[in-house]
């Protein structure tokens, strides 16, 4: 049985989670600690992928990342290639779709930090960037771990958005969830069952990990 889709799913989840965390941590800090006009709108925009049907999100991403879209054109100018139907394209799409899953646990963790610690760091001479790295992040380790685990799990099960942006190219964009769908369509239930079982085990393990992290962060 071909396990490439599973490998692709894991690779996609790992890469998109790492990049997503680098984006989500400053974004969550901005939404929690900085007052700026339109913060409420920005907060809602971050959560939009939670309520949008994946096909709708995928459709807009396809337009933006396509050869005539702004992101697609910028990518072509930089790399000379296209973004849609490539692994890079599905990494970006998975990041957009998992953004709220990464940002929400971080926001919750940041909101729990005693504001006096941030004030103290400011009085002690730290710049906002230094406060972020020296005070905020070390006091939100549980939230960072929960954010990473949720983003990873969400991307592992990603289907609609990846199908819209990446299609189903074997070895490049055909991830586990798409492979399961295609196995079922072809009535190859044995392969579908094995891949599904592996995804269930991974997802359940991840949920156990999230619960463990949440329980530990409550004890801090």
């Amino acid at each position: 049985m071909d396990l490439t889709p599973l490998y692709l799913s894991a690779k996609l989840s790992l890469i998109s989670t790492v990049i997503l965390l680098c984006v989500a941590m400053p974004l969550a800090a901005l939404l929690v600690f900085v007052r700026f006009p339109g913060r409420f709108l920005a907060d809602s925009l971050v959560n939009l992928p939670l309520v949008l049907p994946p096909t709708v999100l995928g459709f807009y991403l396809l337009l933006i990342m396509g050869p005539d879209g702004p992101v697609g054109r910028a990518w072509a100018a930089l790399s000379g290639g296209t973004m849609v139907f490539t692994f890079g394209g599905i990494v970006l799409a998975a990041m957009v779709h998992s953004l709220p899953f990464a940002v929400q646990p971080l926001k919750t963790a940041f909101e729990k930090i005693d504001r006096r610690l941030l004030e103290m760091a400011d009085v002690l001479g730290s710049s906002p960037v230094a406060v972020f790295f020296r005070v905020i992040l070390p006091n939100a380790t549980g939230g960072i771990a929960a954010s990473a685990v949720l983003a990873f799990a969400h991307t592992m099960g990603e289907f609609g958005v990846i199908l819209m942006v990446g299609g189903s190219i074997p070895g490049r964009t055909r991830v586990a969830s798409i492979a399961i769908f295609e196995y079922v369509e072809a009535m190859r239930y044995r392969e579908a069952a094995v891949l599904s079982l592996i995804l269930v085990i991974i997802s359940y393990t991840i949920l156990l990990l999230v619960n463990y992290l949440n329980r530990n962060s409550r004890h801090v």
């Binding site: 610690l117 103290m120 760091a121 400011d122 009085v123 001479g125 730290s126 710049s127």
Partner: peptide, 29 residues
């Protein structure tokens, strides 16, 4: 800004950074 004033400030409580040792708290600034 507070960081430009060079003041020492002690709150009623919860002044120390919980993730740092006492020595590292003192070394912070």
């Amino acid at each position: 800004k507070p960081r430009q004033r060079r003041v020492g400030y002690v709150f009623q409580e919860h002044t120390l950074f919980p993730h740092l040792t006492v020595a590292k708290n003192i070394a912070y600034g």
